Lab assay of single mutants.
Amino acid sequence: KAKLLVLLYAFVATDADTICIGYHANNSTDTVDTILEKNVAVTHSVNLLEDSHNGKLCKLKGIAPLQLGKCNITGWLLGNPECDSLLPARSWSYIVETPNSENGACYPGDLIDYEELREQLSSVSSLERFEIFPKESSWPNHTFNGVTVSCSHRGKSSFYRNLLWLTKKGDSYPKLTNSYVNNKGKEVLVLWGVHHPSSSDEQQSLYSNGNAYVSVASSNYNRRFTPEIAARPKVRDQHGRMNYYWTLLEPGDTIIFEATGNLIAPWYAFALSRGFESGIITSNASMHECNTKCQTPQGAINSNLPFQNIHPVTIGECPKYVRSTKLRMVTGLRNIPSIQYRGLFGAIAGFIEGGWTGMIDGWYGYHHQNEQGSGYAADQKSTQNAINGITNKVNSVIEKMNTQFTAVGKEFNNLEKRMENLNKKVDDGFLDIWTYNAELLVLLENERTLDFHDLNVKNLYEKVKSQLKNNAKEIGNGCFEFYHKCDNECMESVRNGTYDYPKYSEESKLNR
């Protein structure tokens, strides 16, 4: 008799109507990190870190770059004969040098303040090359056809396309004075040089004057150069050297050249137009028929994500570079809930034993079982409120962090190594801060989002509990077992918050 009662009780308990509160689960393989956990499985997430590029040089917003090819900045601007293909260059979106560009200054020497000139050019998007001192009329008392084997072109001695090597005419090199007034309405880049012979005999042979000088002056520039005559090792078949100089001439300003020898005179100059998204990159990537809004030396990035880990040097509207390998923000729920887990921000989770793959029309909802059958029903209101809140948060985070910009490298010469090392340390410090901030932001927001979901499920549970009161009992896994019969209409009233407690209280009292 006792065995019969136990079996009867078990049958009745199993047959009781139930309603459970749960949440969506799926077959997603997404994982995120939080402050407290690593690799948390979630139903949905968004990636904030771009880690792919196309490996190509592309047009930037429809404008092609200027590819210097086998030449570098120095060779292009001075007019190395091997860089003749660059003479027609007028406009570009950015400038590309190759790491091993070999054609710079063909006659050995240095372009002074080269690093600063590169910085200036990094904001130039177009130029006009014009004859600042016409070759045939500007130097009537001097020979202007100086050439050298060091600047050979097609097997013949030649010289820079933008400079003139002035030497004596006959047996004399009379003092020369020439000036140019900038009437271009924009900055003009003027380049010139000073020749330093290897011996007094060479000085006399070329310029006749043993104590020659070169003077260059404008409103913002004033220097006097004296040739340094000295024996030097042979470089590119030359014992002599040429140093090259430049200045930016403001609109309306005048530049005056005065010399008694050794002047490498300007022939062509450049009127410059600035462009905020221009820059110089060093890259071996090849040019393709493609378009982008962000270019790196590795390749083009076409992404609206706020961060990238491809390269710190970028041109155009680019994500911020960070050292992170993963920045994924959760938008959905835990896919593998932890039992009795309390989140960092106070939300209680884990009283549900598992997510439901059968509930596909919402994030949170119900599963019921009664004599009429069983089924899932999503709670659309709480789901939609959660979707709206999380979507707004993700968009806000992306908008705040998605300050796209150009980031170019800084140039230092060989004598500025300590400054370069200090600059690298400062840049590394800023990069570490950006990386830390980005990672911390994602970790915190992921923790908040998961706790937010847990709290929403808990609130749904409490909503049902407050309606049923003692007409049902909690069975410990997020479910309630009714003390009365609850048909589909009754189940719907529980879900929509209109459950009639008094209607079922007498039946429940008897069954309790």
Rank of each mutant, 00 (worst) to 15 (best):
E97D: 08
G155M: 12
G79C: 04
R90D: 06
V188D: 03
Y213F: 13
D84P: 05
Y245L: 14
R161E: 09
L164A: 13
N178Y: 01
S28K: 12
R241S: 03
K169M: 13
T282S: 14
E250R: 14
I73Y: 01
T43A: 06
I281D: 09
W246D: 07
V149W: 14
V235A: 14
L263D: 00
S219W: 00
E277N: 13
S150M: 04
Q204T: 11
L49M: 05
T148Q: 04
R236H: 15
V124W: 07
L48G: 04
V96A: 10
W246N: 05
G155I: 02
E202C: 09
P140L: 11
A217Q: 05
P227K: 07
Y207C: 06
P88H: 11
S205Q: 06
S219K: 12
C83A: 03
G79D: 01
V149S: 15
V147M: 11
H196E: 08
P227V: 14
W246G: 05
M242F: 14
L249C: 02
T260L: 10
V6Q: 08
F159S: 07
Y221Q: 02
P81W: 02
I280G: 04
E202G: 03
V188Q: 03
N27H: 03
V181A: 13
A265N: 02
F11H: 03
Y94Q: 10
P174G: 14
A217E: 00
S122M: 07
H239E: 12
S28M: 03
Q203V: 04
N262L: 00
L8V: 11
V194Y: 02
Q238H: 15
G193P: 05
L57G: 02
C83N: 09
V40Y: 05
C106A: 08
N209E: 02
L57H: 08
L36Y: 10
L263Y: 13
G170D: 12
S200L: 15
N182V: 03
Y244E: 03
S93A: 12
L164N: 10
A265R: 01
L36P: 03
G279M: 07
G69T: 09
M242S: 11
L86Y: 06
I19N: 09
L86R: 08
N47P: 10
L7P: 06
V32F: 02
A41E: 00
R154F: 06
V40H: 07
N103G: 04
K59I: 01
S125C: 01
S172N: 13
A230Y: 14
S125D: 13
R223I: 08
G146L: 06
E250C: 02
Y94E: 02
V235F: 14
L263A: 03
E136D: 14
R224G: 09
S45V: 05
I63A: 07
K186G: 06
T282W: 01
F257T: 04
V147A: 11
Y160P: 04
N211R: 08
V32H: 00
L111S: 03
T282C: 09
V96M: 07
A64D: 09
A265P: 05
Y160G: 01
F11M: 12
